[in-house]
């Protein structure tokens, strides 16, 4: 159980990821590439949360951009208006995000399938409208400028390399927590209720409560990511938090696969790198490709053999409709 070999066998994937991610600043000199990598870390955090919600628990949120916005605007406003300590502001925003998720989740998570999707979509739209309309608070479409970068003692995280290490460290911690969760008693109950809520309930799983928990956790992860982005870019505006972003997040989880939280990593890589490639071919086609990918993945996946077979099998199991009893 605790031999070094056993530890390595269980954790080699995570350790490799951590080493590669944290060593990137030594290998990469290009400023644009570094900023993309830092951006990837926060995207990863959001997708991890959504992967727990959608991949593990089978509940779909189409409004996750709103939780990212709560983190970003929460941090920005608390810091610029109330001069709050940025780290404290980050925590306050995350608690707020969890609270909002609770209020949305309690009634809707009792309903099945498309109602949660529509409710979260509506919620996302309301948040977007508020960001644009509450001009006194958010400065509307002009956005908020002058958000100070994060500092810790003498460490100044406006420096790209240092920020990279910080944000990836946080992302790795979030990832580790999520991996731990999915392999635990709680994670198992999520997997169970995704496959059959009725059976899970009959085995003692309080499904509504579990779904609510995971929805709130995913909101917290999203909010943290929003806070980090806001401090790094030092400017935020409503444009970044629309429906399309929410759908891209879902797309990341779907592309990465539902079987394990590791899918969040593959999905993030795909949805960050793919646009960079597609942009070179056609500036506007990125979302067209994502939209078609979403359809293709869920429609076409029954692949008989080949490398996709395993993924296909996962998705088939996942989407296997239960007979109504």
């Amino acid at each position: 159980m605790s031999t070094p070999v056993g530890f390595w066998n269980r954790n080699w994937g995570f350790i490799t990821l951590a080493v590669v991610a944290l060593a990137m600043p030594l290998l990469v000199a290009d400023a644009y590439l570094l900023s993309i990598l830092a951006f990837m870390a926060t995207r990863f955090m959001v997708v991890i949360g959504l992967s727990l919600l959608l991949g593990q628990a089978g509940q779909i949120s189409l409004g996750h951009a709103a939780f990212v916005a709560i983190g970003a605007y929460g941090s920005a406003l608390l810091v610029t208006r109330l001069s709050m300590n940025p780290w404290l502001a980050m925590v306050v925003a995350a608690v707020l995000a969890a609270g909002v998720a609770g209020v949305i989740g309690i009634p809707t998570l009792k309903l099945k399938g498309h109602y949660l999707a529509m409710a979260t979509l509506g919620f996302g739209e309301i948040v977007f409208i508020l960001l644009v309309q509450l001009k006194g608070l958010t400065r509307g479409t002009d956005g908020i400028t002058g958000i100070p970068p994060l500092t810790l003692g003498s460490l100044d995280f406006s420096q790209p390399r240092l920020y990279h290490v910080l944000v990836w460290l946080v992302a790795l911690i979030v990832f580790r927590l999520a991996l731990n969760l999915s392999e635990s008693r709680v994670g198992r109950s999520l997997k169970a209720l995704r496959r059959s809520e009725l059976a899970a309930e009959s085995l003692g799983v309080n499904a509504s409560w579990r779904k609510l928990q995971v929805f709130m956790i995913s909101a917290v992860f999203a909010s943290l990511a929003g806070s980090f982005d806001a401090h790094y870019v030092q400017f935020i505006s409503p444009d970044s938090y629309g429906i399309t972003f929410s759908v891209i997040l879902v797309c990341s989880v779907v592309i990465g696969g539902f079987r394990s939280v590791w899918g969040a990593l593959w999905g993030t890589l795909a949805t960050v790198i793919l646009p960079e490639v597609i942009k070179r071919i056609h500036e506007d086609a990125v979302n067209l490709v994502f939209g078609i990918l979403l359809i293709l993945i869920v429609v076409l996946l029954p692949v008989k053999s080949g490398p996709l077979a395993r993924v296909a099998h996962d998705v088939r199991c996942l989407f296997h409709r239960e007979e109504r009893g």
């Binding site: 927590l177 731990n180 969760l181 635990s184 008693r185 709680v186 994670g187 198992r188 109950s189 169970a192 085995l203 003692g204 799983v205 928990q213 956790i217």
Partner: peptide
């Protein structure tokens, strides 16, 4: 599940 107790904290950490 119904005879065990580990909650979020125990699972996360």
């Amino acid at each position: 599940h119904c005879r065990t107790y580990a909650g979020l904290a125990a699972a996360f950490l």
